[in-house]
């Protein structure tokens, strides 16, 4: 059963234009010019109960705008939305009891209060009796490993600890759907990994449907079974993670700094992207050759430094467009 139903959804923003310099500022007072930015263009998709869906795209693609329309923050210009059978615009309060939200770029917690006090406050917001809130805090404290800092003011927490607390605060009322808007933004790889495993555990333990926006390919690779890619306000791909991996995430970029120059040519599964003698950048097609194999070719003893990364999201999107053509 679809828990989120989006049909032909569109949202435009009117943005004021200003010519450069002081003259432009004066001119804009008397002759203001505006342009219409089409943030979301006629998109449709469904999300099933218990799914972890990644809604990804580059900056300005329309991810946050969509998530904000799904959570009652923004009014759509066209189209219809049903979240748990409710219309976010007409049933805002009812829906708020059923969903949780975490915006990586915005704090919902009071920074001078401890996470514990914050959780109690959120309990009151969702009209949960004190005893039930205490029980829930205890349960989430264990699941999210908050024991060390649950009584430390939020302003003294690291970014990773804060995001963990933000997620816990959004789970106090047992939401059926959790909307996570770039929850790993600004986090280091270790903390990112930690947050991802917690999100996964939460989905498993509570069967919470998770709708996640991110422009980090790692987030989707580790978490999701289904991916929706949005670019310029339009959905360019709605597919399973398996298919995406097979078709588009089958390449890794290996950048290595070498002790000695090596002569490496393009061969099956390996493409040389950059060869500056001691610095080498290769693309490994993982369907044909494993990354470990590629490293063996470089000779691990000869490597001073190495970095393995996914191909950028922008490249995946352009590949999707190419394949469509």
């Amino acid at each position: 059963m679809a828990i989120i139903e989006v049909k032909k959804l569109s949202k435009n923003f009117k943005v004021k234009l200003k010519e450069k310099g002081f003259k432009g500022s004066i001119k804009s007072i008397f002759k203001p010019k505006h342009k219409i930015v089409k943030a979301v263009k006629n998109i449709s998709f469904n999300v099933e109960k218990g799914e972890i869906v990644a809604f990804i795209g580059p900056n300005g693609a329309g991810k946050s705008t969509t998530i904000k329309m799904l959570t009652s923050i923004l009014f759509p210009d066209k189209g219809s939305i049903k979240v748990l059978g409710l219309n976010p615009m007409q049933d805002r309060k009812k829906l708020a009891y059923e969903i949780g939200t975490v915006f990586g770029q915005k704090e919902q917690l009071w920074t001078h209060l401890t996470p514990y006090d914050n959780f109690k406050f959120f309990g009151a917001i969702y009209d949960i009796p004190d005893a039930a809130v205490e029980r829930k805090i205890e349960e989430l404290k264990v699941l999210f490993e908050l024991d060390d800092f649950i009584n430390t003011p939020v302003r003294n927490l690291s970014l990773g600890q804060r995001i963990r607390c933000e997620i816990v605060a959004s789970l106090i009322h047992n939401p059926k759907i959790l909307f996570l808007d770039e929850p790993t933004i600004g986090l280091d790889p270790v903390v990112k990994e930690n947050i991802r495993s917690l999100i996964k555990r939460m989905n498993k333990e509570y069967k919470t449907t998770i709708f996640l926006t991110s422009h980090d390919v790692g987030d989707i690779e580790k978490l999701c079974k289904r991916v929706i890619i949005i670019n310029n306000g339009q959905i360019v791909l709605d597919d399973s993670m398996e298919n995406l991996k097979y078709h588009y995430l089958n390449k890794k970029i290996v950048e290595a700094k070498m002790k000695e120059k090596i002569n490496l040519d393009d061969e099956d599964g390996i493409t040389i992207l950059k060869d500056k003698g001691y610095n080498l950048k290769i693309e490994v097609d993982t369907t044909k050759r494993s990354v470990a194999d590629a490293i063996k070719l470089l000779n691990p003893d000869n490597i001073i430094d190495i970095n393995i990364s996914n191909i950028p999201l922008e490249d995946i999107i352009s590949n999707i467009y190419k394949n469509k053509d």
Partner: peptide, 14 residues
Amino acid sequence: LRRYSSSNLMSARI
């Protein structure tokens, strides 16, 4: 509120 356009500015509740 129907015209609210939100924002993605970084912010904290202090």
